[in-house]
Nucleic acid binder design. Structure first.
Lengths: 191, 191, 191, 191
DNA sequence: GATGAATGAGGATTCATTCAT
DNA sequence: AATGAATGAATCCTCATTCAT
């Protein structure tokens, strides 16, 4: 029998890709840079991936999964809607702070030519538990009836903006501001 | 006397760049494509610009200026804060809808490795009238005291998210949702 | 005891090579394609052959042997020269028609850089019975004295050209033309 | 104004290609080898040609033209058919002897994956005067009625085989053999 | 000023071959 | 024996930039 494909090596390739995209954007990405950073030969990458797009899309899905799990952590559907709302808001906010670099990657990916239809759909699927929470809250009459687009606009957009602002060092970490943002969002969305 | 550099040609180069980035993203951009689209020779670009980065950054500043002017259109400082707030919100919202492609460029640019420190600061400067409005409103006690980061998070982020959502065709144009979003923002920010 | 090299597998490799060369020419040939077609691992090929050239040359010799045998089939040296001449002409002609793909390979091989001096000589050796026929016929005074080069030019070239023309579908199968070609050749060569 | 494309350089590229194909076959051909042999940078080739195929096909057509002109040289349609036949036979034979290397290229080209439909047809077109001669001779009743495939088989194949044999040094130049071959062909084809 | 030609550097990908199991 | 993994070298081609006119 021959040597086995090492999960370690596949991981090294994706980690190298993640770091490079964060450091230099998708524009500067190249197979030879990935290989050098991963400590392997360029041709070895092709043992694990069919082409550049495959690395980038798989990395996207892995990160999306990692983060999706994080967002619903500790949430129970026995909680009141307001309690659940705040748990999820905090999780999401903390996740962006904790996975700052991974979120940077996700954002760059969305604006890259590499994104495939499959990845888009797969990525959306992993967001289902999050969207389900709002659907149920609307069904229960705890939250105003609104489209998914408006959920994104009212819930995610301001939170994400604030978290990224803090990440970039442009704002100080200010617990009052965070509470204000979270509370404003709840007021904006609750019935 | 020698021929002069023509502003017309410089403009053609930037317009070509804008269209290309919108159509194919920064990834597919190349000097030869810009030249072909602008109807000139590749080498001629170097008469007007030092390198790729210079085109991209100047285009960024031009667009930023165009849009900044739009945002404060019709606003008078004799208006009440609430009236001014709503005029600016609408202007901004309509601007993203109207200059959808230009905003796309701006977004791609912000995530590209081309952006220079100078551009960042220059771009921020053009936003001064917009930020001044909030500073004054806070000074007058009409709006809660908050950092610039929070202004971005509460005012721009949800509005921008909604506008882009409509632009991308994912949501229907829904005047109720727009009013809801604008009103929620006012509630969140007013004292 | 260790497993033995299997003649079956060696054959599968050569068959795969033959088919690939016929389908895509020497240009598209690669070890990985051969392996895939033969249903084995690339590295396994190196158990049976030293390198690409060895496969190609051995295949050449195998085909040459196959065809050489065919050409003299049914010929007896008790026949008259004219009878022998016509038997061999027909055999050869039918062989090109029957082994169209194999002849294609032989031709491509002759124009490739893979051909070795050893293969050339070995290949010529297998043609000996064919050339012996003409040597004897000249010795008996039934055929004009001529060099081997002229035998090739007058006997093989027109017949081969006609057969390949029919194979390629450019000409219809036309028994009269075949008879004409064979008869003309006999007239040209007989004393 | 900028530098002009030099016909010289385009020619150098095609000459380099011709030599390389003759020396190492199509298999060994590569852009970098062509560039080195032509004394220019690899990228410069792309100023003159779109891709490898374009070089190879243009070279084919150039050689085909060169040779086609040669074949009908000195032929007048006032000649008797037999006289014309022999003039053309000799021209063709001498041409293969004189342009030995170019014919080698033509042959390799026909068995390469580069050949395009356009080239095939264009190449055939240049052979028209040659084929016209036989059509007329048949119409006049001087030559047996036969298909183009049989013209190739009876006229070109033996002559070409003989010429190449001499070129390869396998046979001595033997005027008697040449006359014999030419005469046999005439006997085979005349009515 | 304008531009076509020229090019070194670098891109993705494939390949023949060797290595470790 | 059999084979999957690993890789250096090579392939085609594109690009930003400079040069010569």
């Amino acid at each position: 029998m021959a040597r086995h494909k090492s999960a370690k090596k596949q991981d090294a390739i994706m980690q190298a890709t993640l770091h490079l995209v964060i450091e230099e954007g998708f524009h500067g990405l190249s197979m030879s840079k990935i290989a050098k950073k991963a400590g392997i030969a360029t041709a070895t990458i092709y043992v694990y991936f069919k082409n550049t797009g495959e690395i980038i899309n798989l990395l996207y899905l892995n990160l999306k999964e990692l983060i999706s799990a994080d967002i619903m952590k500790g949430y129970k559907d026995t909680m009141t809607t307001e309690k659940g709302f705040k748990v999820i808001w905090r999780n999401y906010f903390d996740s962006i702070r904790k996975y700052a670099r991974e979120f940077q990657y996700l954002e760059q990916f969305a604006n890259s030519p590499y994104i495939t239809q499959v990845s888009k759909e797969e990525g959306r699927k992993q967001f289902k538990p999050f969207l389900d929470f709002f659907d149920q809250a609307m069904a229960h009459g705890d939250i105003k009836k609104m489209s998914q687009g408006l959920v994104l606009a009212l819930f995610i957009a301001p939170m994400s903006s604030l978290a990224k602002n803090i990440n970039s060092g442009q704002s100080q970490i200010d617990e009052t501001a965070i509470e204000l943002a979270m509370h404003s969002t709840w007021l904006a969305m609750k019935k």
